[in-house]
Design a binder for these strands. Structure first.
Length: 418
DNA sequence: TCTGGGGTCCTAGGACCC
DNA sequence: TCTGGGGTCCTAGGACCC
């Protein structure tokens, strides 16, 4: 059996840990740039605030303190997430960290699953303060359904185990088609048109039909719903195949200088992520875009991919090539809203192809980057930069409602006045 | 005024190989 | 009129996830 542990309203719950006075108040967390709502407490959901609504639409509620809004604080959420995983690891050797707020646990051979799952849930709550729900079932897809079922129908207990065919059938019938893991908007529409409205309907569909209309992805889904496991737990963290760093700007940029500064910073972030997973990349892609929501403004989107002579993760090389790309796609006369850098063609350090005619990266370059990383990330200060990254940061994202990094910075610890 | 930022996998079709 | 039978690699686009 597989358990899916999913944190409830994760980002909102993290903010509440350090703001206990908001424990029963509506809380929302906003995306980068304080753009739109990406997490809501139960109270906020009950007020009808939908996922993804632009912040300006609920501005009034926020200003009148009917809703408490936070800018997203990924340093905090990441650290709390690690603590949750640390606690979960005590309960099984086999754990897949699926996302920042979800993990699959292999409970094969375990008995008394309901009480074990309840124990997992209460321990996480005790150790971290984060509320979770736990769904237990024979496959990952069914564990997702069990988890949803627990959240929806047994929130108090927070645990649901699909250990009999009757319970599986009941949960499948209670799950509408668009709530199945792997069914998005397009498939939901297509399935509804064929009168397949619930997970139960899909589980009874013909395998050939599903394969023809939803490829092997759908076929796997069908098996999983029928209790035959097709998706195994991924216990090892594979290095990423693409790495992207992009942001919307706090203000529109019309000049090349601040845009270059932003791109240099995104490139440096990509290079750091590469080094962190001990990889090097063969391609550097840059893109820029105007604001697609501004219907009256001239629109421009462009991107370019630069092939490196030798795969690399040196900040200086990645930045240089990202800026070269930018200079090729930059056009005067537009209001730029967003830019990004993507590194791809990623291979492990030491397994890359050497260039025939260009010099190979030397060990000194490696050491320089190591020093850079140690200084920047030993205390999270990020003080050491390359000149191209600049100091102006006119492009910086808006986050006016940012909480402290309570758990990772000594200078931002929680202060209590007695 | 104001609308996020990351990722993955699968398939079809074209270019090319012997 | 008649024109083989395999393969691989790459890319774009479509689907999905949190």
């Amino acid at each position: 059996m597989i358990a899916l542990v999913d944190c409830n309203n994760f980002y909102a719950s993290c903010e509440r840990l350090f703001a206990p006075e908001l424990r029963s108040k509506p809380v929302v967390v906003l995306s980068n740039n304080d753009g739109c709502v990406i997490a809501r407490s139960d109270e906020a959901k009950a007020m009808g605030i939908k996922m993804g609504v632009p912040a300006f639409e609920i501005k009034n509620l926020i200003e009148r303190q009917k809703v408490y809004a936070f800018s997203s604080n990924y340093t905090l959420y990441g650290d709390i997430s690690n603590r949750v995983v640390q606690t979960l690891s005590q309960f099984t050797d086999e754990i897949e960290i699926y996302s920042i707020d979800e993990a699959f646990l292999n409970l094969r051979g375990f008995s008394n699953l309901e009480s074990y799952a309840t124990q997992i849930r209460s321990t996480v709550k005790q150790h971290t303060g984060i509320p979770t729900c736990v769904g237990v079932a024979p496959t990952k897809t069914l564990a997702k359904i069990a988890n949803r079922y627990a959240k929806k129908h047994h929130k108090g207990v927070g645990v649901w185990v699909l250990d009999t065919s009757e319970k599986v059938e009941q949960a499948l019938k209670a799950t509408s088609i668009e709530d199945i893991w792997g069914v998005g908007r397009r498939y939901a529409k297509m399935l509804e048109a064929h009168n397949i409205l619930t997970a139960y309907d899909l589980s009874k569909a013909s395998e050939n039909w599903v394969k023809a209309n939803m490829s092997v992805v759908g076929q796997r889904m069908l098996y999983e719903l029928r209790g035959i496991s097709c998706l195994s737990l991924e216990l090892i963290n594979e290095p990423q195949k693409n790495i992207c760093t992009s942001r919307s700007f706090g203000m529109m940029l019309t000049d090349k200088a601040p845009l270059s500064e932003a791109v240099a910073n995104f490139a440096a972030a990509c290079a750091f992520k590469l080094r962190k997973q001990r990889s090097v990349a063969n391609f550097v892609q840059v893109f820029v875009t105007t604001n697609p929501f501004a219907k009256n403004e001239k629109q421009y989107f462009n991107s370019i991919t630069i092939t490196l002579p030798v795969a690399d993760s040196d900040s200086r090389i990645i930045i240089k090539n990202a800026l070269l790309g930018l200079s090729k796609i930059y056009r005067d006369g537009f209001k730029y809203k967003k830019a990004g850098v993507i590194v791809s063609g990623i291979v492990p350090e030491g397994e890359y192809q050497l260039a025939l005619f260009s010099p190979n990266p030397d060990n000194n370059a490696r050491k320089v980057m190591q020093v850079l990383d140690v200084i920047n990330h030993s205390n999270g200060s990020n003080k050491l930069k390359l000149a191209a990254q600049g100091f102006d940061r006119t492009w910086r994202v808006k986050n006016e409602r940012l909480s402290q990094r309570f758990t990772t910075r000594f200078d931002e610890l929680l202060t209590i006045n007695i």
